[in-house]
C-alpha cells in the first residue's frame, strides 16, 4: 500500500474528480435543477412539455394550480420521490428516444392527478363520486373534465 499510495490516490481521485466535474457540468447544462423547482416554466425544459404548458396558460386552472399542484403529491418526501421517479423515466425516454410522439399519462401519475382534483374539490363532489374512482379511468374527474388543466 505504501508504494502505491500516491498512484492509488491518483487512480481513484482523478477519475472521481472527472466524474464529479462532468456530472456537475451536465447537470447545469441540461438544467437538471429544473426538477427541484416548482415554477411551471421549468417543465418546458423538455420540449415535449411545451404544448401542455402553452395550453395550461390558456386553461381555467392557470390561476389556481400549476404543474406540481396536480402532478406531484404535496408532502415533501413523496413529492421529491415522485419527481425523482418521473425525472429518471423522462431522462431515460428522451435519451433513448423510445417514447411515443403523443405521450399518455401512466397509471401512477393518473392516480396522483386524480387525488389532486380532490384536494380542492372533495367536498363539492362528495355526493357524486364513484367508490373506486381513483382506480377506474372511466369514472375519473378528467374523463369528463379533460381540458380544465390543459388541452390533451
Amino acid at each position: 500500500m505504501q508504494g502505491a499510495g500516491a498512484l492509488g490516490t491518483a487512480l481513484i481521485g482523478v477519475p472521481l474528480g472527472v466524474l464529479l466535474g462532468v456530472g456537475l457540468y451536465t447537470f447545469g447544462y441540461a438544467r437538471g435543477y429544473s426538477y427541484l423547482l416548482d415554477e411551471p416554466e421549468v417543465c418546458t425544459n423538455c420540449h415535449v412539455m411545451q404544448q401542455y404548458y402553452d395550453s395550461w396558460l390558456r386553461s381555467s386552472h392557470r390561476k389556481a394550480a400549476a404543474c406540481n399542484d396536480c402532478h406531484t403529491p404535496h408532502a415533501l418526501a413523496p413529492k421529491y420521490l415522485t419527481k425523482a421517479v418521473n425525472g429518471f423515466n423522462h431522462s431515460a425516454a428522451f435519451t433513448t428516444g423510445r417514447f411515443p410522439d403523443q405521450i399518455r399519462i401512466k397509471d401512477r401519475n393518473r392516480r396522483l392527478a386524480e387525488q389532486a382534483c380532490l384536494r380542492c374539490h372533495e367536498e363539492i363532489t362528495a355526493a357524486i363520486r364513484a367508490p373506486h374512482q381513483a382506480d377506474d379511468e372511466s369514472f375519473s374527474c378528467v374523463a369528463c373534465h379533460a381540458i380544465v388543466g390543459h388541452a390533451q
Binding site: 500500500m1 502505491a4 498512484l7 492509488g8 487512480l11 481513484i12 482523478v14 477519475p15 472521481l16
Partner: peptide
C-alpha cells in the same frame, strides 16, 4: 496496486 483502487477507478 490494491484491487479495490483499480475497480473504483
Amino acid at each position: 496496486l490494491d484491487r479495490r483502487i483499480v475497480w473504483t477507478a
